[in-house]
């Protein structure tokens, strides 16, 4: 049965804004402002949002690259920020990541063998031959052959480099891989190759993924559950089918409408006006009301409640409360 691998409870991350010589704090960037969700074993959860939505900050908190301001991240029902010693090492091994630009995530001075073997050497005792064999088998898993072992990142194409980064991520036999825009720096024809590879690896190695992206078009293929996030808060969450077939939040609908579609002529889509507001002073009430074409009075004053449309399909929007849904039905 599904058990929560990772549970995030009311996660907040505020970055202080410092000025002057002594770094006086004059305000906070509220990058993540109370986000809760979980990732179950064997599940692919997609965190979808634009830049400034806080999706990458959430990933960095999960990877222990940032310390949460408040809230809990539970792994095996233990708070990861409190982990020490063997438990910490175990968590490190279990949660790995693949980043957007493979050329930045691979050390330019190391060859492929060194890159993939580094984490392995650090956590397992293997002889040189065993290591070589293990790294070669990883390369094979990601669709590269042994001839790549002594190549340097700049000799690889974008797709090959991303495969190496994936090989490194699976080298420690993790349970969860955080994929931070894994294909958005790649060419379209290569994107699909990488997504297919990720889907295959998931089955083969029984992995879970947390996919972080702004591109809804790649999300449907791979994910079981989708979380739509805007300015540090969740707007809508549900199963992949529910979100794609019945998007409830105006923001979700607009995101769908923004995906370029070759078979649709220009002008047939809703264009979101204006820029996202600053996360230093997020708007009161619903965060999206400043750009929402359907905003009503209450949206500007009070935070929207959670509305359950099904067991896991939830939306945070006043328009879907019983009192208001009649006013806005179109």
């Amino acid at each position: 049965m599904n058990t929560a691998l990772l549970r995030i409870e009311d996660l907040k991350k505020y970055f202080p804004i410092r000025v002057g010589l002594f770094g006086k704090v004059v305000g906070y960037i509220k990058a993540v402002d109370g986000v809760s969700f979980n990732v179950d074993a064997g599940e692919v959860v997609s965190l979808v949002g634009e830049s400034g939505s806080g999706k990458t900050t959430i990933a960095r908190c999960l990877l222990l690259l940032e310390k949460p301001t408040s809230g809990k991240i539970l792994y095996d029902s233990e708070d990861i920020t409190q982990l020490r010693g063997e438990k910490l090492r175990n968590y490190r091994r279990s949660v790995q990541a693949v980043f957007q630009n493979p050329f930045l995530s691979l050390d330019p001075r190391m060859n492929v063998f060194q890159i993939i073997s580094e984490p392995v050497k650090n956590s397992m005792k293997l002889s040189r031959e065993e290591l070589l064999e293990y790294v070669s088998s990883l390369l094979e898993l990601v669709g590269l052959d042994k001839s790549f072992l002594d190549k340097y990142p700049h000799e690889l194409s974008g797709g090959q480099a991303q495969r190496v980064a994936i090989a490194r991520a699976i080298s420690l036999k993790p349970k969860l891989i955080i994929l931070d825009e894994p294909t958005s720096a790649l060419d379209v024809s290569v994107q699909a190759q990488i997504l297919n590879l990720l889907a295959d690896l998931k089955k083969e190695l029984s992995l879970s993924y947390l996919l972080i992206t702004h591109d809804l078009s790649i999300v449907k293929y791979i994910s079981d559950r989708i979380i739509i996030i805007y300015l540090g808060k969740i707007m809508e969450t549900g199963s992949s089918e529910e979100i794609f077939e019945n998007p409830l939040h105006p923001y979700t609908r607009i995101l769908f409408s923004s995906i370029p579609d070759p078979y649709r002529k220009f002008g047939e889509r809703v264009i979101l006006r204006g820029e996202p507001p600053s996360p230093v002073n997020p708007p009161p009430g619903c965060r999206f009301h400043t750009r929402c074409p359907y905003a009503i009075d209450i949206c500007r004053k009070q935070e929207p409640p959670e509305i359950k449309s099904s067991l896991i399909h939830k939306v945070y929007c006043w328009l879907h409360t019983e009192k208001h849904s009649s006013e806005t039905k179109t």
């Binding site: 024809s189 699909a192 297919n196 293929y221 089918e241 794609f244 769908f256 579609d261």
Partner: peptide, 24 residues
């Protein structure tokens, strides 16, 4: 043709995405 097939369409649930094998 390959390029057009590579674009994921949101109204289809794929079991496998189309891609163009190889590289430039």
């Amino acid at each position: 043709k390959g390029l057009l097939e590579c674009i994921p369409k949101t109204h289809i649930k794929y079991s496998k995405l189309k891609s163009i094998p190889g590289m430039i």
